[in-house]
Amino acid sequence: MSLFFDSSIARKVSMALSAIFLMVFLLQHFAINLTSVFSAEIFNQISHFMGTNPLVQFVLQPILIFGVIFHFVMGFILEFRNNRSSKVKYAYNNGGANSSWMSRNMIWSGLAILSFMVLHFIDFWFPEINTKFILNDWSGLHNGEFRYFTELQHKFSYGPRVIFYCIAFCFLSLHLLHGFTSAFQSMGSTVGRKKLLQNLSYLYSICIPLGFVFIALFHFFNH
């Protein structure tokens, strides 16, 4: 008997679990970012709470980092193993006849998201880590005022960055259009709920990335 994580299905289940975790995170990230459209003050307060709360910083943040790394690494492992299972390729293969482009190209949409995340980390996460953990400044203040909203507006005032963000969110949408239902299918939760999950998938995969694009464009045009 193999151990649970030795089996191909266990790898898929772990991939699905990390995906569901990341989708929950994305939802709360979106909800927080959306407040920046309505109120700079609320956005500053929530950002400061998230940025200084010990539970978020020392428990949830490491779990999130682990989740992100795990999802990418497991994605590459699965892709590598899957390529091994079919060494000779078809001379003519009509993949589009029976499956969606998104489902066949998760690795490419994933890589696009990964490249976006590098920029996103350089833009926001690394400066945050530097301020808090290297400079040991946990005040969240700049010139006597909360800096979060100002930093956000400053980043989104640069056109090429906004365009790159918008493109990345298109890839995120494509990734989610397959990934959302795929995660639940891997968990064995789709039996009898296929239609519901498909509708939820469309709702989540289109609305959330579109919402992020809206926020980026809103700040670009209103800074």
């Binding site: 191909s8 499956s99 066949r104 795929s182």
Partner: peptide
């Protein structure tokens, strides 16, 4: 599943192509 893995089949990525074909 152990035997399936031993035979070297790949992982399912839920493309749904199998169901269609």
């Amino acid at each position: 599943i152990d035997q399936m893995d031993l035979e070297g089949f790949g992982n399912c990525s839920n493309t749904g192509a199998c169901e269609v074909e």
